[in-house]
Design a protein around this nucleic acid. Sequence first.
DNA 1: GTAAACAGTGGAGTGCGCTCCAAGGTCAAG
DNA 2: CTTGACCTTGGAGCGCACTCCACTGTTTAC
Lengths: 131, 131
Amino acid sequence: MRIGELSEYTGLSRDAIRYYERMGLLESHRSPNGYREFGAEAVPWLDYVRTARRLGFSLAEITEHGAALKDAPDSAAALTALFAEKIAVVDERMAELARLRSELEERSGTGCPLRPQPGGTAVLDGATWRR
Amino acid sequence: MRIGELSEYTGLSRDAIRYYERMGLLESHRSPNGYREFGAEAVPWLDYVRTARRLGFSLAEITEHGAALKDAPDSAAALTALFAEKIAVVDERMAELARLRSELEERSGTGCPLRPQPGGTAVLDGATWRR
DNA sequence: GTAAACAGTGGAGTGCGCTCCAAGGTCAAG
DNA sequence: CTTGACCTTGGAGCGCACTCCACTGTTTAC
């Protein structure tokens, strides 16, 4: 498929796709006319990239992981290890979110996380913010 | 406390703290000599900011939430609603992470998420990547 | 055959979130 | 009274992840 079609399927701009290719996140071969040709697997891959991006992973991190996948000897063990590593990162990030969430939830119960200051401005109350 | 001390406590650079102040994320009053003076509540607030940043929230989002907190009528209900909103965003992001994680985990079980291509490059197999 | 839609390239520009620097003011210690 | 640590401002620069643009080539539809 050509870049426009891929763009439609993934919701990414053509420019973004070309940029990803330059960054080594994506490969294509060229038709005789010079147009990029992408395989169908590019769609789910870019879906994955988009999700990972939204969750705060940099293109470099995603590229690195992709490269590791490609370079890995095709053994189940190596791949499992790679995925386990990525899963650990994801788990860590989820734990952070859980902490943030619980902080917010705690606050949501108490009626007063704000305290007016002499200057007229209101700021978060450090004493009650901390558990 | 002055900027250097705050910087030490939070692990943020002085430049970053000044930048946050310019962006309206943080307030200070000035000593007669022009130095910024921060209250103790700045420390947990910046801790929170750092956590939220790491989790992919933009400074604008964090600022907005902070501003909403300040502008809110000091009623328990309004504050609870604000926090509930933020918690919903966090929950959504956690759900995305969970999806990413489960995709990775599934993959980790199967021995072969890679398939060699005619060109000699290996790419993710779209057919098996999709559930 | 011509117009529209699509593709290519290179390069400039953008917004975010800083970082670094120069030039200078403030203040406590020796 | 100098030294050094700390603070101020303004402005330049940077890395990331694009986005936009001008110009050119290709394909498709009428």
